[in-house]
Design a protein around this nucleic acid. Structure first.
Lengths: 181, 181
DNA sequence: TATGTTTGTTCGGTAAAAAGAACATAAGTT
DNA sequence: AACTTATGTTCTTTTTACCGAACAAACATA
């Protein structure tokens, strides 16, 4: 799938969502409408500043023009898909909702007993983890800068680098969301 | 802030994270290394296919090259944080993570006291809600078929139809994720 | 029916991005 | 030292994306 085809698909949709005609959008973005016309028809190879001008005029991030319809493609890749966490002796992770085709996240409930910390190998690039501690106490986060959490605390950190989860009190439980880009 | 400057900052970092030299990356992406050199020095106005080739070679989404890097970690202590949604007398919802450009989900922590049920108006079509109960007891779900949850229970239901959240015990707390299509 | 005003399209001229070669520099071999 | 193989930079050439103007088609106004 060539990148321009994605733009050709998303651009008219976002433009109409903003209630703009092709000519209006071109004027507002400060680009020639011929350029916009070709982009929407799937031809050409837009430069970054062109995309930037369009995204700004549409009041959306540039990424929405490029990989909004892309999530499915990224998930299909072998080796990059959602992986089940291994359940060690003192660490039980329950998969509550596996990643459906449209979304890009897994939700786990983790129940941990004090003892050895669970260090996770990095997940695919761009992964973020979100933790909300429900009970007990835990030391959570990047290996180089973990944070002690109390019930109700929320902490998010990059999952594509080494990170840890260590219970500091019995029956520590938390909600863990793994999110891909 | 011009977009090219962001790329110039991001590109070398991602390249080194992948353990590639400038020449290696250029070869693997199928672009001239002169092009890459100028991009990393903050000059030029790269075309979409150039960005695409680089992102693919680096095994990252294009948006990572373009959009400003989000703060990597974020900690919200229990009781702190922005109180989004209408905080009725017995219902406090804290927005933990609002929807970033690429993803489409909001994470809330809700703390509810027994009393009147909180009925929500339907959200946009396709929205799903996920609830993990942390403490207390609650009656949650679609108005016509709510479910009583105990700590640790997980329940998901369509958010685009009327639904309710009613605490059945004091200090009921839960994690709520609203997910768009 | 004429007359503007929009719509989105298809053309040449020009500025610029990308490719490729040549360059200097550095680190490792023989 | 002489040679090899990397590194990243700076050039020239070729390609092409952008612009602006001219264009046809649809709609409105008079």
């Amino acid at each position: 799938m060539k990148p321009i085809e994605l733009i050709a698909a998303t651009l008219p949709r976002e433009r109409q969502r903003a209630g703009l005609s092709l000519s209006q959008l071109a004027k507002q973005a400060g680009i020639a409408k011929s350029t916009l016309s070709q982009l929407e028809s799937g031809a050409g190879n837009p430069a970054l500043e062109t995309l930037w001008a369009l995204a700004t005029a549409l009041n959306i991030p540039v990424s929405r023009l490029i990989d909004a319809p892309q999530p499915t493609t990224r998930l299909i890749r072998a080796g990059e898909g959602p992986r089940a966490l291994s359940s060690e002796a003192n660490y039980i992770a329950t998969l509550l909702s596996s990643c459906p085709p449209s979304a890009r996240r897994d939700i786990f409930r983790v129940c941990v007993q004090p003892g050895q910390a669970r260090d996770s190998a990095p997940h695919p690039a761009g992964t973020m983890e979100h933790v909300i501690l429900c009970s007990g106490r835990a030391l959570v986060g990047p290996l180089e800068a973990p944070v002690e959490l109390a019930p109700g605390d929320y902490f998010t950190y990059p999952g594509d680098r080494p990170h840890t989860f260590k219970a500091l009190a019995p029956d520590t439980s938390a909600v863990l969301m793994m999110e891909s880009i």
